[in-house]
């Protein structure tokens, strides 16, 4: 330990027998413990690894592009590949749903569960714009959770409505009906409309009986809505006696409805979506709690748990 400039304080630390580096920071000295050589080698290996990595994977930014790497890997390509894999995995189920007649679907609980899950996903893409993400609807767009259906709420009817849409021109099977615009077309006078509004409110337990309105109803409305105002699903004529209003049950909205009529529309999904997807949507909508006349196999008969968190019989 001779003539090492700047390292005069270098000494052997007695307890460890190791040389110090010869510097002192506020009384703290540093031992000069050599690193094991293999550690250095692992460091060199990481460098080699890093170089190899930048060769095979996209890495270096260029002027207008970047190096593509010899593996040709891209995150988009990996995504596509995985989507393809998933689609292939799903194919047997989608095919089975496509083939099974709608009426038989609930009798196959496993397929039904799969259809509901598929419908849940498709609903988020095609239906939420009008019906909302929870299918709770809004003014003019029906709430699909409740038990009031304009055209019918059993699985097959919901499916038929989905396939052909509502008031789609050029489609013979579409749901079609036309409420007259009683006020706008001069069929009824504004005072008569007010009586009618009073009668409609009366039959839905919101106001007093109105004899004039009742008479007008019998002549003008009962054809579609029925003599008691309970509606007729053949025409998509809503039940006027229940607690659910598509546009609103207050006097003002009713006046507006009777004066100008209502005619909501829905696309004929059978034209743009795959048959299996439409079936899935029907199953999902039917499952929301208001579905009707399910040829109900008791819940106990259900075999496989629908949840992915289920036990031994589900393999990831």
């Amino acid at each position: 330990m001779v003539d090492h400039d700047g390292a005069d304080n270098k000494r052997i630390d007695a307890p460890t027998g190791t040389e110090t580096v010869g510097h002192e920071w506020d009384g703290i000295e540093e031992l000069n413990t050599p690193l094991p050589r293999w550690w250095l080698w692992t460091f060199y290996i990481t460098i080699v690894w890093a170089i190899g990595y930048t060769v095979v994977y996209p890495a270096w930014p260029m002027v207008s592009n970047f190096t593509k790497g010899s593996f040709g890997w891209t995150s988009r390509g990996q995504y596509d590949e995985q989507m393809k894999l998933e689609a292939a995995k799903r194919a047997p189920i989608t095919d089975a749903i496509e083939k099974i007649p709608m009426a038989d679907l609930p009798r196959n609980p496993q397929l039904m569960a799969a259809a509901i899950e598929g419908g849940r996903a498709a609903f988020k893409v095609y239906c939420v714009q009008c019906h909302g993400s929870g299918a709770a609807g809004s003014k003019g767009f029906p709430n699909l959770n409740d038990d009031d259906w304009l055209w019918g709420g059993d699985l097959q009817t919901v499916h038929a409505t989905l396939v052909n849409g509502i008031r789609q021109p050029g489609n013979n099977d579409t749901r079609n009906s036309m409420m007259p615009a009683f006020g706008r077309d001069g069929i009824l006078k504004p005072a008569e409309i007010q009586s009618l509004v009073a009668h409609v409110q009366a039959i839905s337990h919101r106001g007093k009986d109105n004899a004039k309105g009742a008479a007008l109803f019998a002549v003008n409305c009962a054809v579609c809505h029925g003599p008691e105002g309970k509606g007729n699903r053949q025409f998509g004529a809503p039940n006027l006696t229940d607690g659910i209003w598509l546009y609103g049950g207050d006097a003002e909205t009713l006046t507006e409805t009777i004066t100008n009529a209502r005619a909501g529309v829905m696309p004929a999904w059978g034209q743009s979506l795959k048959p299996a997807t439409v079936k899935m949507l029907a199953a999902y909508v039917h499952s929301l709690g208001g579905g009707e006349a399910t040829p109900a196999p008791a819940l106990v008969a259900e075999a496989a748990p629908a949840s992915a968190e289920a036990g031994n019989n589900v393999q990831p």
């Binding site: 330990m1 700047g6 040389e19 000069n32 050599p34 094991p36 050589r37």
Partner: peptide, 13 residues
């Protein structure tokens, strides 16, 4: 100082 140390930077096992 780095070069003038007596102990090596790395040590073989």
């Amino acid at each position: 100082d780095l070069q003038s140390l007596d102990q090596p930077m790395y040590q073989a096992r």
